[in-house]
Amino acid sequence: MVIKTRALAKSYGKIIAVDGMNLDIEEGEIFGLLGPNGAGKTTLISMLCTILKPTSGRAWVNGFDIVKEPSKVRKSIGIVFQQPSVDDLLTGRENLSMHNLLFGVPRELRKQRIEEVLAIVNLEKRADDLVNTYSGGMRRRLELARGIMHHPKILFLDEPTLGLDPQTREHIWDYIKELAEKECMTVLLTTHYMEEAEQLCDRVAIIDYGKIVALDSPQTLKNRIVGDIVKLKQKNPDKEKIRKLDYVMNVQEKDGLLFISIKDASKHLQDLLAHTGQIDSVEVRSGTLSDVFMYYTGREIREGEAEGGFWERMMKK
């Protein structure tokens, strides 16, 4: 286990941000923490990267206790924070060379590492420009480059693609996947983008109110919980009758529509429609992690809503 937590908890007065979490993350895994704002994802990551002390419980990162051996933990990890933390007034290259010094990269490797990571994130041409001339996506890429430069065993990514356009987002996913494979790095990322979790993660933990409510691979979660979704419009539907069918997993009524989760729609749709009788309309789609999330929390995850964007945070303070 590269990351292990046992009853890890953090509370602020009466508010419990992380509520006794047990996690086991294996080497080389891309592991996602999925949850709405304030679910405790960032708090968890902050504890694991030793900037926040847990209230109770224990955790080990790369075999080191996060409370007793913080500096060994820090040497094993790379972090990309939710808020941009590259230095605006330095150039990209200067940011990287400062990181080299701070993370004790051996002198003879420094130059080579900088070129290496700049190439990975395609920033060679802009490396000597001040970061305040970079776009949001470029900054993110620079941070990613910085996070991996000292070859950490574990990379923490807190909302790595927050506020980026879809194209840049996909690029960054590619980088992350490539890195995890090439360097055999374990990646722990938080996100509230369902698509990100589905595309990127080997396993996903759905977190709500500081607790893990479900944990498995995205595919398994979907298959087990939601299957395919049939959206029906019908006057006076007989919910009980539908629920009794053995391939129906769940029936929910929302806004006058019936949402029926079934196993393998291609096989059972005909039979289902035979049992429902007259309908006004029908729509079939495969289930997503959003549906899984909805199933467990009873709420929809609001995509695109940041946990306080960069500027928002600045204005508030």
Partner: peptide
């Protein structure tokens, strides 16, 4: 600290 530039330094494995 407000702009989070310091965070990078604070998580570094240095005293």
């Amino acid at each position: 600290r407000k702009l989070d530039f310091l965070k990078e330094v604070l998580v570094a494995p240095v005293s």
